[in-house]
Write a protein that binds this DNA or RNA. Structure first.
Lengths: 340, 340
DNA sequence: CTTCCTTTGCAAAACGTTTTGTATGTCGCT
DNA sequence: AGCGACATACAAAACGTTTTGCAAAGGAAG
């Protein structure tokens, strides 16, 4: 590659004007030029390896074909990858590229990053969180089309997408009920977030539908970590009439439950069935036996966010949507019928 | 924000010409304009919320201030986040933005993505892998400044950065030897990759330095997964004179070793010390007891790659470097002195 | 009173596109 | 033959910057 080839080179090589080349290549305007000439121009362009400079066309069209993705912390969470990949795939399919930016927890930094995105004339922004929560978008985003990812917002100008937490709870309950369990417990997240409320509510609802109740002593809240899950499980499993099945807020807590069971000499799944949420391959696949869990649809949410954003760019008046994406159950080997 | 404010608006508001505004704001050329006028212009610009359009300046300067990051698979690996964050932080500190693109394992797709980056006039590219391996960069990258991340290449035009695998092996051995172990085993990755060779070599070297040898029956290779580690550990721990310490190729295999130990009724760390590699928080922190492990410096590698790329952009003749970054030991609770 | 700098500011061109408006033919129709 | 309609191609302007070259004004030196 010597120097970049531009549209002028193509025009010269094809013996036509720059205008004609542009029209020929534009698809929308190609009707303005003879079909044979179009062929010829495309051939020449291909030969020269011409690719339009998007900086220039972006400048001209006021449309950069770049989307910004701003997230809180990419590092510490294993979900980020799937979200970004979903977003990037969708963007790429529609001829857009993604600029990824993350701010840690620093608001000032976030502001700066958003300004940087704006300077690069991004067409819109995905404002992402790594855990389903309630956010209010920073003022910097004013005027910039925005879709909120894995978070809810009360800003009526923004669409958002979150997992269907209620459905996730239902699915988990469904699996356990169907296996025949009746003494069922749940270890919830102690934090006051939509994910905790939603999963619990769905879980309860599905149990109730089968005439079962989540007894008060069978619901504990703990820190959403392996240690938190372990402690909680130790407590739950030490009672006289211990539950035969356990629904954990996430896979990490489920891992803690495995440890507690191992410690108490309780066999999974023969003596205790366990269900998690997240489908963290790294954990769910690694546990022994494999953990049955409700998958969070990070990839799909990333896709949805970008597709919705692109749709709103095409039609700024499109209705804003609060989307919930359903969470498929991934069965492995941690659920079995109760023994007694 | 009504409509975007451009340099012309600033000029008008400040009562000077566009040229003067540009010079005043440019730092390099600000000597061409009176210090008081500079102050005034900056004030006005700030008031109006002016931020230069980087599409336009990129077009003019042939420098987009965008870097491309192409990786194989972001999704399936928990390391990606740290790498990207490192890269992004470094880029952001130097006024650049990152365009992230990933190709799965599809070469054709990869080519397309790279072309897309080129259309957006990226100044350079980080070509990343999620596991240390040997790569040859695709021809599309010809002419585009490139730094290879977490992989080695024989292309003399590209710098690269990888973890110091040899040092990682040494550190692990050091920890075990210092604790007093003499019957030490290793579960290596069965794949023929630099990481496997390097860690083994370093481990051996450090043992030898203490007069210890890695007996043949104490070295097994397995699939680098929890299941692989579990099987291998079951085998290693079933002998008559079983080892008192175990070095695992990665944290997932170490988790398998925990499971094997649990299954055999062997207590960690009292009866068996375990060391891993990766420092996957999700696993190392979650295991019980916590796993002592050698951390792979993904964040630092991401940083290094971007900084080196920027340096090469400034000075295209800068020497290419094959960098190894050292791997710090993270101690938790899985290593103790041997009992006998 | 010239001449020659220095300081300060501006006009204009360029980066690579896209699109509007216009010019040149060519054809069909009356 | 004359007219409009249509097909085809082009010139030029615009997007928002940066930078080169030049101009005006003021001051110092001769």
């Amino acid at each position: 590659m010597a120097t970049k080839v531009n549209i002028r080179d193509v025009a010269k090589a094809a013996g036509v004007s720059v205008t004609t080349v542009s029209h020929a290549l534009s698809e929308a305007h190609s009707s303005r030029v003879n079909a044979r000439t179009v062929e010829h121009i495309k051939a020449v362009a291909g030969e020269l390896g011409y690719a339009p400079n998007r900086l220039a066309s972006g400048l001209r069209n006021q449309r950069s074909r770049i989307l910004g993705l701003v997230s809180d912390e990419i590092t510490t969470t294993p979900f980020a990858g799937a979200m970004i990949q979903g977003a990037q795939d969708a963007a790429s399919e529609h001829g857009h590229l993604l600029m990824v930016v993350n701010s840690g927890l620093d608001n000032e930094l976030e502001r700066q990053e958003i300004r940087a995105l704006q300077q690069h004339q991004v067409d819109g922004v995905i404002y992402a969180r790594m855990f389903h929560q309630l956010v209010s978008a920073p003022g910097e985003l004013n005027g910039l089309p925005t879709v909120v990812l894995d978070a809810a917002t009360d800003d009526p100008r923004m669409s958002s997408v979150v997992p269907d937490e209620f459905g996730a709870g239902q699915s988990a309950a469904e699996l356990l009920v169907a296996a025949g369990h009746r003494r069922i417990a749940m270890i919830n997240n102690e934090d006051d977030i939509p994910a905790a409320h939603g999963r619990l509510a769905g879980f309860r609802e599905r149990l109730l539908r089968s005439g079962l109740e989540l007894a008060e002593e069978n619901l504990v809240a703990a820190h959403p970590s392996t240690a938190g899950g372990r402690e909680a499980a130790l407590q739950l499993l030490s009672g006289t009439e211990r539950p035969t099945a356990l629904f954990c807020f996430n896979d990490q807590m489920a891992m803690g439950a495995y440890q507690a069971a191992g410690h108490l000499g309780i066999k999974v799944p023969q003596e205790l069935s366990i269900v998690g949420v997240d489908n963290l391959e790294l954990i769910a696949d690694a546990l022994w036996p494999g953990l049955s869990t409700v998958a969070l649809p990070h990839y799909e949410m990333g896709r949805w966010a970008v597709l919705k954003l692109l749709a709103e760019l095409d039609d700024p008046d499109a209705a804003r949507i609060q989307e919930k994406i359903s969470c498929p159950l991934v069965e492995r080997a941690s659920v079995a019928p109760p023994q007694d």
